[in-house]
Design a protein around this nucleic acid. Sequence first.
DNA 1: CCAAACTGATGACAAATGTCATGATTCTAG
DNA 2: CTAGAATCATGACATTTGTCATCAGTTTGG
Lengths: 214, 214
Amino acid sequence: MIRLVLADDQALVRDGLKLLLELEPDIMVAGIAENGLQALNMAKQHKPDIVLMDLNMPEMNGAEATRAILKELPNTKILVLTTYTTDQWINDALNAGAQGFLLKDTPREDLIRAVKGTVEGKNFLDPQIAGSLLKNREQFSNEAPSWLNELNDRELAVLKCLAQGLNNQQIAASLFLSEGTVRNYVSSLLAKLEVQDRTQAAILGVKSGLGNSK
Amino acid sequence: MIRLVLADDQALVRDGLKLLLELEPDIMVAGIAENGLQALNMAKQHKPDIVLMDLNMPEMNGAEATRAILKELPNTKILVLTTYTTDQWINDALNAGAQGFLLKDTPREDLIRAVKGTVEGKNFLDPQIAGSLLKNREQFSNEAPSWLNELNDRELAVLKCLAQGLNNQQIAASLFLSEGTVRNYVSSLLAKLEVQDRTQAAILGVKSGLGNSK
DNA sequence: CCAAACTGATGACAAATGTCATGATTCTAG
DNA sequence: CTAGAATCATGACATTTGTCATCAGTTTGG
């Protein structure tokens, strides 16, 4: 049995969704909220498996509420239901840690599938919304980190350090090398990456996902 | 009428998909390929609206084929059909520019919907695959770039340049300032961001999404 | 065994970077 | 009007960075 909290500022939508969801035998609407603040309180009170969250709400918007709920109850799943794909808060909600995004014109069967799937850890993204995610991604992860192969272990280690913003002295300490040696590795690194200086190398590293994993 | 090219190395899958797709009156299977190379040729020959692409294929895998096709025919949509969510090539295909990702156990109706939606520019991501995208995103876009408010226009402009890897001279040229002035702005920037050098500032900038938009 | 590659190191040098003090304009609020 | 901002600029200076030539062990493949 899936326990669910519903948050939307429009009464009609709330009531409609409630009916729609309770047609499903293994879904139980544990609480209904009219704004983000109520959603947070409902979540704390009922500890639901999943929260269906509207974005545009008074008091506390969906993104803020998502962040607040996840801070208290990190295992709760948040499925965002929004009206417009251009909603400026989609990005916020994404960052706040929402697990899924649906448009309100999603057919009932899809909504039910998304609710159940989200509880199981899947991530449902409406096709109209997914585009921005894909584009965003392109900005960051480079198409072909082909140079990863050209770099030897040391150079790769140095690049990781660069991507973390260390200077030569810190890198030397970190890798137990002399500073001069580090300078040499940085130098050959720059040549292989075909960049002009450590900053450009660091940017490449960050964009390729280095610099996060120690 | 949607013209479609199908690429999969398994005969059964090819035949099954062909039958399944042609049940739909407004979809026409223009070509069938057994590997990536054939897919590329088929695409060049038939100029389809969309290519259904398997990832694991001999000769040229799906990701490479995707990249090759998009290079020649940038308006073609590529919908990837894969068997496993852990497929190591998913990332490659994503970077190669595929517009959608489905698992092969997707029901027929969803497949049809995805094909039509993808042609219309939507992005269908299987819920099991979308997760990695969301996680990836978390690494990069910082939740609260609070310092963004503390920076004035010039400093922000300089930070953008830093995030693009420009040196002081290039920044000066770009913003029509003297190099010395740029050095001053960089200096105050570093203080406000509480970092030690331009590399660390650039990393912050990149992680916050600057450095992409001019 | 020997050449080649790899790894780590030094010193010297030019260029880029970061910090500071200081000035000149211009704009704005009291 | 005037003090104080914001903006742009200089020059001087110490430090960091990047490049190069060179050297010395160690490993490895032929």
